[in-house]
């Protein structure tokens, strides 16, 4: 036996159950009672039980390398090829061009603004709704279903519904705002250069906050009730409970939600493609739509690959804390 089962009952430093609560279930357990036992496979092949992992993990890993690793490396190698086949076979000129390209710069900043606003608003609304839904309310399951609907529909569908709602003349949003007297004249949601990106973010808020809410709600429900009871007996106020129990208890879920949401928002494609296709001009162009255009409208494969490589580096960098946190726990 290479690892032994950890003592599951609360250890002395297992303060108030927090540690136990967030300890992964699989960790420390070892299900290899007979690590040296031979497993008989077809064709008379024998394999020791402690080596059996290769049979389980192997197919998935090989498949992933084949369908994902290989193309990713291919993309990397496109990105260092010159756009015109010439004397050099490898060059960094694509990356140099990238830095000179004002469209790329604008697109990059659009992405930063889009992702930052989206994630911040998701966290804010998601946390608020999760907190409200975590209290004893009648019809809570119904609220939860309703709140999750925007997250379930395909990106394209979400984009199209809102494009139609945003329509300055025939759309319902302007009609509503005019009727309640908030504006005197129709707002050009998607064609006003100052508004376009924010209008897209508003749709993305609608679409993305349910996931954050879901994760945080699960986190809230995992905080043991007795922590609150104990603290209340010790005379903690409601706000103290919130700051000293709820927020620390949620910390891990917040990291997870932040990381996954950020990655998803950077990759968001269908929503913008369906709504604005990056327009007006390039005001709502983000990295994913820009790369797509470089690939399939301008056919600049090498250049597009360079953009996507930059994007990948950014994404891996952003998600590194999450990846490290999860794999450390394992």
């Amino acid at each position: 036996m290479r690892r032994t089962r950890e003592s599951t009952p609360s250890s002395p430093d297992d303060r108030a159950g927090i540690n136990r609560q967030f300890r992964p279930v699989g960790k420390g357990s070892n299900s290899l009672p007979f690590p040296e036992m031979d497993c008989l496979l077809n064709f008379g092949i024998r394999i020791k039980d402690r080596h059996m992992w290769a049979l389980f993990v192997g197919p998935g890993v090989l498949l992933l390398i084949l369908v994902l690793g290989f193309p990713a490396v291919a993309s990397l190698s496109y990105s260092i090829k010159p756009e015109q086949a010439g004397t050099v076979s490898y060059t960094l000129s694509n990356y140099v061009n990238l830095l000179k390209d004002p469209f790329f710069k604008k697109t990059f900043w659009n992405t930063v603004v889009f992702v930052f606003l989206s994630v911040a608003s998701h966290m804010f609304l998601g946390l608020t709704v999760a907190l409200v839904l975590n209290s004893a309310l009648p019809a809570k399951p119904l609220f939860r279903i309703i709140a999750l609907l925007p997250w379930v529909v395909p990106d394209v569908v979400a984009g199209i519904i809102w494009k139609w709602m945003y329509d300055p003349i025939y759309g319902s949003l302007n009609d509503f705002l005019l009727r309640i007297g908030l504006f005197d004249s129709p707002v050009e949601w998607l064609s006003n250069p100052k508004l376009a990106l924010f209008s897209v973010v508003l749709v993305n808020l609608w679409r993305g906050f349910p996931f954050v809410m879901l994760i945080l709600l699960a986190g809230l429900q995992a905080i043991p009730q007795y922590l609150y009871e104990a603290a209340e007996i010790d005379g903690a106020s409601k706000w103290q409970l919130f700051y000293h129990i709820t927020i620390p208890g949620l910390r891990k879920m917040i990291v997870v939600a932040l990381a996954l949401d950020t990655v998803w928002e950077v990759r968001r494609f269908g929503l913008i493609q369906a709504m604005t296709q990056g327009g007006p001009g390039i005001l709502t162009e983000v990295l994913s739509t820009y790369t797509y255009k470089q690939y399939f409208q301008f056919f600049r494969f090498e250049y597009a690959s360079a953009i996507s490589v930059v994007m990948t580096i950014v994404l891996l960098f952003v998600s590194l804390p999450y990846i490290l946190m999860i794999s450390q726990e394992e």
């Binding site: 690793g69 291919a74 950077v266 597009a304 990948t312």
Partner: peptide, 18 residues
């Protein structure tokens, strides 16, 4: 495990070209 997690993070546009 880190590899599996990291692959979740790759953007689709990295792969569509190849």
């Amino acid at each position: 495990i880190g590899f599996f997690l990291a692959t979740q993070m790759l953007p689709g546009v990295l792969l569509v070209g190849p």
